[in-house]
Computed example of a mutant assay.
Amino acid sequence: MSELKRIFQRIASNADDFIDELRDRFTEHTGGYGPVQLVTYRGLGNKEEIYLKGRVLLDRNVKPAGETDSVWRNLMAMYKRFNTREIPNVRVRARFAGQEQTVRTNAEGYFEVRFALQLQLPDWRDWYEVELELLDQVAEGQETVRATGHVQVAHAESVFGVISDLDDTVLETGATNLLKMARLTFLNNARTRLPFAGVAAFYRALQRGPQGKGFHPIYYVSSSPWNLYDLLVEFCQVHGIPDGPLMLRDIGIDQEMTGGHHTHKLAQIEHIMRYTDPLPYILIGDSGQQDPEIYERVVEEYPGRVKAIYIRDVSEDARDSEVFRIAQRVRDQGVEFVFVRDTLDAAHHALQHGYLYAGALEDIGLDAKLDKEAPSDLEQIMGLEGK
């Protein structure tokens, strides 16, 4: 980054902080905030420590998506998601397994909870609950504000985990086409956006593993902003995609100064690796942005902890040539790098290498067929489905 660009970004950041401070002073002078919500993001952990992130925001009352929601309603819901009013410098109390701690929100309303565990967690549970409560009065007539956070802990018998990108890997985003990306993001909702064919069944099969009855944790890492968290969680639930922590990104001037897409995703993968050491991983992404470069770096930094890499081909020939070069370098380090056209390509490889149970291909093939028969987002927007 050039020095001139750094100077302009620092000026913009200071101006942004100044505006936030003025807004907070005005809010305090006029009687406080309106309804407040405690937003929790799925966390992760191990037998010794758990981690959870959340945010305190003005409640914009974004409703779950409906089958017949109009484009206008989808657009208004997206506006509410991005027009956030964060609540800085307030206390949040967290309780877990008889332990308690109090943390404060930062300038963007985010808070983080870390518990060094004093009790042994049982081996048979995948998810644990953390009880949260806002301790400060920030709105007139405010009632008690509580929320329950969820933390995923890998089983001792898990033989691998999965780290997956979201955009153009699980759901079509069109990240390399700005107009298409804008249409898919702003005019659709969790029910009208579609996964790539067969993805849900493939991820369910990976989660069950080679015996078909285990638990192999899945983590989703994306450069999408935290503002889309509720939409992405609902999307996964609607389409039967397995639950897992979603590691998204804060957006803002300060965040652009400290690193972009590559830096964010690599940091989140390192975060997962640290909390789940020594569990090895299957990495899944696409060729549209920097997943191949990021995953090559992970292979270098964590020798022996990457079993295979699946990259969906969504790019032009010029980009494909570079991906092929990365693939060869990764294979030279003893890690399978598979450049796939679709989900079934990846599933065939996974079955051959013992990552899936017998019969998984049939389930994935059926799921892919149904996904391909579903109306596209444009057909749903224009009311042409079933015609």
Rank of each mutant, 00 (worst) to 15 (best):
H349R: 13
E172Q: 00
V238K: 07
F8C: 09
A154M: 12
N46H: 10
P225N: 10
Y355D: 03
R305F: 06
D123V: 13
Y79N: 04
L378W: 06
L132H: 01
G141Y: 07
L184I: 15
G386F: 09
D24S: 07
V338Y: 15
T144I: 15
N106Q: 09
A94L: 00
Q37H: 05
S321T: 14
I253V: 13
D345L: 08
F202S: 07
Q380V: 00
A154G: 07
V56Q: 11
F324R: 15
L232K: 01
G174P: 01
L194I: 03
R341Y: 08
D69R: 10
S287G: 15
A15Q: 13
Y110C: 03
Q99A: 01
E3L: 14
V90T: 09
D59C: 02
E373L: 05
T102W: 10
P292N: 10
G244T: 07
T102E: 15
L187S: 04
L187F: 12
N46I: 09
A107I: 09
Q328P: 05
R125Q: 15
A15R: 13
T258C: 00
Q211S: 15
I253H: 03
M382C: 08
L378T: 04
R297D: 04
P210R: 11
L246S: 02
R95Y: 04
N188H: 09
Q120I: 12
D313H: 14
W127T: 14
Q137S: 12
L231T: 08
Y219V: 10
I11C: 06
I19T: 12
A116P: 06
V39T: 13
K47T: 15
L344Q: 08
L228Q: 12
E373N: 00
D59H: 03
D286N: 15
G383A: 01
N61E: 14
Q101G: 00
V39I: 13
I282H: 05
G365T: 14
Y295I: 08
G43P: 06
Q101A: 06
V299I: 11
I364W: 05
L366G: 11
T148P: 01
L44W: 02
V238E: 11
G383D: 02
V113C: 08
L378I: 07
A12Q: 11
Q207H: 08
Q333D: 09
P242M: 15
R331T: 11
L134M: 11
G141D: 02
E322T: 05
E49W: 07
A65L: 10
L135P: 03
D317Q: 13
